[in-house]
């Protein structure tokens, strides 16, 4: 079986030939540079954390403090997740066809596939 996941250096960076992130590895090898973190914010209790952007920080604590200053200046959040970007594994857009193909012909997974008489009412 073909494995459709490829590990990249940065979650949102890099891809196949001529994707944007190819050069990151070449240019971002300065050891003094702070690592990149991806930031997720829960806007209120009961909702999911949502990706809002990224920033540089030396460690997780600093990433959270910077994220507070950058992404929640107007009470946009009640909770913040941070993860170093290099730990994110992303699917490859060039393989999207094969990856999602198995779902295409299974229309019986949707409720509208089943035709019921009107007398049934809302179901």
């Amino acid at each position: 079986m073909k494995i459709n996941l490829t590990k990249y250096y940065y979650g949102d960076f890099g891809g196949d030939e001529n994707a944007a992130g190819d050069e990151v590895k070449k240019t971002n090898d300065d050891a003094s540079a702070w690592p990149l973190w991806e930031i997720f914010v829960r806007s209120k209790q009961g909702l999911d954390h949502k990706h809002v952007g990224s920033l540089h920080a030396t460690d997780a604590q600093m990433a959270i403090e910077n994220a507070r200053d950058v992404y929640t200046r107007r009470q946009e959040g009640v909770s913040i997740w941070v993860i170093e970007s290099k730990h994110i594994t992303a699917s490859n857009p060039d393989q999207a066809g094969e990856l999602y193909e198995p779902a295409v012909d299974k229309i019986y997974r949707h409720p509208t596939f089943y035709v019921l008489p009107d007398e049934v009412g809302h179901m």
């Binding site: 949102d12 190819d22 240019t27 540079a33 952007g53 200046r73």
Partner: peptide, 24 residues
């Protein structure tokens, strides 16, 4: 002024996804 620093950061992050480092 603080907003503007934040806007700079959002934009640098967007540019970084194209493969140029912040330091550069």
């Amino acid at each position: 002024v603080q907003d503007e620093a934040g806007h700079g950061l959002y934009l640098y992050s967007a540019a970084e996804t194209l493969g140029m480092s912040r330091e550069e």
